[in-house]
Structures are given as C-alpha cells and as structure tokens.
C-alpha cells in the first residue's frame, strides 16, 4: 500500500476515535449539560440523610440544579453535613427549604430544594437553615404502631 494512502487512513482512524470520545463526553455524558467549574457550594445539616450518596443530584422543581459533593458527620451537632455544588445559573433565596426525597418507589435519593420568598440570595458557602431529613421506613412504622397503640388506649379508657 502507498505511504500517503496509509497515512490518510491512519489519520481518519485517529479522527474517528477522538470523535467517538467527544460524542461520549458530550452526548452520552454530562459534560455538555453541567459544568462543575461554574458552580457555587451550599451546605445543609440534616438529621438523617437516609441513602443519600456523593454525586446524588440536587433538584429543584424536578430540574437537576447541582450535585452532592461531600457528606460528613459533624461531631459538634451530631448530624450529617451535606455539601452541594449548585450550577451558577440557578440562584436560591435565603429561606430555601432543603429536603431529602426519593425518586419513584425504589429510586435513588436526592436533595430537593424548594425556594422561599426571601429577597436576599444564598451565596457560595452559605448554610441552608431549613432542612427536612429523609424518611426512614422503620421510624415511620414505629410511629404508626405507636399512634395505633395510643388510639386503642384512648378507646379502652372510654369504655370503662
């Protein structure tokens, strides 16, 4: 085979390979939609984070606005400190409400942000004051049984 023709084919091969990498990065991956360098961090303390993981999405009104970057346990307040990276395009008021929710019946857990009505906006490094922790099934069942039992007690006392 001629030298020039071979070079041409190798060039095409390398271009196709790099093109495939670009397709993977931009169309398949999240590089095109979400960039980490244009983001700010928010911190929230949660009583219980349930199954939240690092990289879990942060959503507001169902739209992914950021990701959980770090989860630590605080020995001062004895609760979980969740650090979130939020896209710069989305600003939230100071009284934003953060809660840990589950997508679907069996789905993964995410942080849901519900915007409040405050004039001032949260800045990078700010702490979200109002948080709601994850629902834990055992606690829910325990609460339900406790309520049921106290109801029965009341019913009994009415009889006698």
């Amino acid at each position: 085979m001629q030298r020039a023709k071979m070079d041409l084919w190798v060039g095409l091969f390398v271009v196709a390979g790099i093109g495939a990498l670009l397709i993977l990065a931009l169309q398949v991956g999240n590089l095109g939609t979400y960039s980490e360098d244009k983001s700010y961090t928010l911190v929230g303390n949660f009583e219980n984070i349930g199954g939240l993981k690092i990289r879990s999405p942060v959503k507001s009104a169902g739209v992914v606005v950021g990701r959980v970057m770090d989860i630590q346990f605080s020995t001062k307040t004895f609760d979980a400190v969740v650090t979130m990276n939020i896209d710069d395009r989305y600003q939230f008021p100071k009284d934003t409400f953060a809660s840990i929710l589950t997508s679907g019946l069996l789905g993964a857990q995410y942080v849901g942000l519900a915007a409040g009505g405050d004039e001032g906006m949260l800045k990078s490094g700010d702490k979200i004051m109002k948080t709601n922790s994850a629902l834990v099934l055992e606690e829910m069942i325990g609460q339900f049984l406790f309520d049921k039992a106290s109801e029965d007690d009341e019913g009994d006392s009415d009889k006698f």
Binding site: V14, G17, A20, L21
Partner: peptide
C-alpha cells in the same frame, strides 16, 4: 495508542 480509540468507537457505536 489504538486500543482506547477503538474502545471509544465501540461504546459510541453501541449507544
């Protein structure tokens, strides 16, 4: 050199 490029093509084509 060619192995990562080929694997990227494989994945892109698979998607």
């Amino acid at each position: 050199i060619s192995m990562p490029l080929l694997a990227a093509m494989f994945s892109a084509m698979g998607v």
